[in-house]
Amino acid sequence: MAKDFLDFEDTRYNRQELVPQLGPEGQRLLGKARVVVIGAGGVKSPLLYYLVASGVGCIRIIDFDSVELSNLNRQILFTERSIGQNKAEAARDRLQELNGEVEIEAATARLTESNVHDLLSGFDVVVEGGDSLATRLLVNAWCLSSGTPMVHASAQYNYGYVLTVLPHSSACFECVFPDLPEGHGGSVPVFGVSTGLAGVLGASEVIKLVTKRGRLMVDGMLTFSGFLSDFLFVPSPKRADCGACGVRSNNALQPTAFGGG
């Protein structure tokens, strides 16, 4: 075994600091990073676990919803004792047990146009989520306006995907999904492992963003189909006619909307 390995101090993060692409400098960048995560559900549960375990410096979790029994097949931050608790607060308490070195804040508000700036500003990365298409488009627009990179990970049935938005240099969420249907309003069919896969892929994107390492999933999405054991990158380039970041959109040039910047 190399001498460097023998001399290495056995610390919380030493296994990942030994990864050449990360190293102590990558770990330092992780420790400085501030990440805001919208939602603490099926996808965000594993995503948050890995961000906290990896030593991201500061995380805000935004979720107004409460834990229900039907969440427990996939929302692995929670236990039967969590039922009825606010998800952001229950997630914070669980994650703080995992890593007390990470500053974790719970915000129990519902994200709206009037509070989006207060809730999202001051962070290096936004992990998108939300209970409606309107909220997703709002977050996308805010990230474009503020210039904040955004990671979007999603799952249904036994498939899912992840994509990253680098404002004004890559396709935004609305470039990729310009005309999504509204949610159907019923129970979402979803297999727990698919939310797990999407969440882990999302955490990987966040870590690459804040450490400035690796290749991001931009201008398309990395999709997976669990039952087919299939991973596929689907290209979806930036659209000149995009309603959110295109040449005629409000966010086309400068950060002005939402009072952000």
Binding site: L133, G160, T195
Partner: peptide, 11 residues
Amino acid sequence: IIMSPSMPCDG
């Protein structure tokens, strides 16, 4: 030909 429909929300 590969087709992947839109996905409105996550689980």
